[in-house]
C-alpha cells in the first residue's frame, strides 16, 4: 500500500519530534497522591508487618491505581506497536507512510506513558525512603528517651533486685522450712502454678509469626537494622530507576530520529513530482529579449 502523505500536516510530525525530544525533561508534575506518615501505630508494629503495612497502604493509594492504569495502557500500546511492526516488516522504504506515522505516534505515546509511570514510581520510592528515615529517627529517639528516663533506670534496678532475689530464694525457703514453716503460702503456691502457664504463654508469644524477629539473609536482626536494610534496598531501587531514565531518554531520542527521518521521507515524496527545477532569470538567458 503506497500512500502519499499530502494529507498529513508537516506541523504534526515536527511537533511530534519536538515532543519526543522533550521527554527526558518532562515537566509534567504529578500531585503526590500517596503520603504515608510514620504514625505511632506503624512504629509499634513488628517490623516485618510494618513493611507489609506500608506496601498495603501504597497498594490502596490513588498513586498505585494510577500506576496500574498506566501499566495497562502501556500493555495495550505495546501490543499495537508490535502488530504495526509486524505489518511494516516487509514494507519498503517508500511504502506505508500512514502506518509508519502511526507507529512513531504510538511509540511516542508509549514513551509518554512510560515516563509518567517512572515519575510515579520515583515519587512513591521517595515517599517510602522518607517514611523509613522517619521511622528510623523515631526508633532512635524512642530508644534514647527510654534509656535516659527515670522509668528505664527503675526497671533496671528492679531487674537487678529480681536477679539477687532469685539467687537466694531457695536458701530463704530452706531456712524457713527448718524453722517450721515448711508449708508454702497461698501466694507462693498460686504463683508457682501460674508461672508454668505464664512461661507457656510467653513462649507462644515469642514463637508467634507476627512477633518473629526480622531476618536478613537468615540471620535475626534488630528492628533498627532491618529498617536500615530496607533503606539500603530503596536506595538501590532508586539507582536502578536513574539508570532506567537514561534508557528512556535514549529511546525517546531514537523515536525523535525516526520522526525526523519520516518527515524528510514524506517531504521528498510529496515534493518529488512537483519539484521541477525552475531556471533562474539570468542575463545570459534573457538576451533574446534585447536582440
Amino acid at each position: 500500500m503506497m500512500t502519499k502523505m499530502n494529507r498529513l500536516p508537516k506541523a504534526f510530525i515536527q511537533s511530534l519530534a519536538i515532543s519526543v525530544l522533550a521527554l527526558s525533561a518532562n515537566s509534567v508534575v504529578y500531585a503526590d497522591s500517596w503520603e504515608p506518615v510514620a504514625a505511632e501505630s506503624l512504629i509499634e508494629l513488628p517490623v516485618n508487618l510494618m513493611e507489609k503495612r506500608i506496601q498495603q497502604d501504597f497498594n490502596m493509594s490513588p498513586l498505585a491505581s494510577e500506576l496500574n492504569a498506566i501499566e495497562q495502557d502501556m500493555a495495550t500500546q505495546g501490543e499495537k506497536i508490535k502488530s504495526i511492526q509486524t505489518l511494516l516488516s516487509d514494507a519498503s522504504k517508500d511504502e506505508m507512510f500512514d502506518e509508519k506515522v502511526a507507529l512513531v505516534k504510538l511509540k511516542s505515546g508509549f514513551l509518554d506513558a512510560m515516563q509518567s509511570g517512572q515519575l510515579l514510581r520515583q515519587s512513591a520510592l521517595e515517599q517510602k525512603i522518607d517514611l523509613y528515615q522517619e521511622v528510623l529517627e523515631k526508633l532512635y529517639s524512642q530508644q534514647n528517651t527510654e534509656s535516659s528516663s527515670a522509668t528505664f533506670k527503675l526497671q533496671q534496678q528492679q531487674n537487678n533486685a529480681r536477679a539477687r532475689m532469685e539467687k537466694v530464694m531457695s536458701q530463704v525457703d530452706a531456712a524457713m522450712s527448718e524453722k517450721g514453716f515448711a508449708e508454702s503460702t497461698p501466694y507462693a503456691d498460686e504463683f508457682a502454678k501460674n508461672l508454668a502457664k505464664i512461661e507457656k504463654l510467653r513462649s507462644a508469644i515469642n514463637q508467634h509469626k507476627a512477633n518473629i524477629s526480622p531476618m536478613v539473609d537468615g540471620v535475626a536482626v534488630s528492628t533498627e537494622e532491618y529498617v536500615r536494610q530496607l533503606l539500603m534496598q530503596a536506595a538501590s531501587e532508586q539507582s536502578l530507576l536513574d539508570q532506567e531514565s537514561l534508557m528512556l531518554s535514549y529511546m525517546s531520542r531514537l523515536v525523535a530520529l525516526d520522526a525526523q527521518a519520516l518527515e524528510y521521507a514524506i517531504n521528498v515524496e510529496s515534493e518529488g513530482e512537483e519539484s521541477v527545477l525552475q531556471q533562474s532569470t539570468t542575463p545570459a538567458n534573457s538576451i533574446d529579449l534585447f536582440l
Binding site: 527515670a150 522509668t151 527503675l154 526497671q155 534496678q157 528492679q158 533486685a161 529480681r162 532475689m165 530464694m169 530463704v172 525457703d173 524457713m176 524453722k179 517450721g180 514453716f181 503460702t185 501466694y187 507462693a188 504463683f191
Partner: peptide, 25 residues
C-alpha cells in the same frame, strides 16, 4: 518474728515482681 518474716518473704517477692512499680516515677 518468724511469722512476720514468713509474710515478709512473700511481700518482698511480690514487690520485686510487680512490674507496675517501675512504671511509677
Amino acid at each position: 518474728l518468724m511469722q512476720r518474716q514468713h509474710q515478709l518473704i512473700d511481700m518482698e517477692r511480690m514487690v520485686i515482681r510487680d512490674e507496675r512499680l517501675s512504671q511509677q516515677n
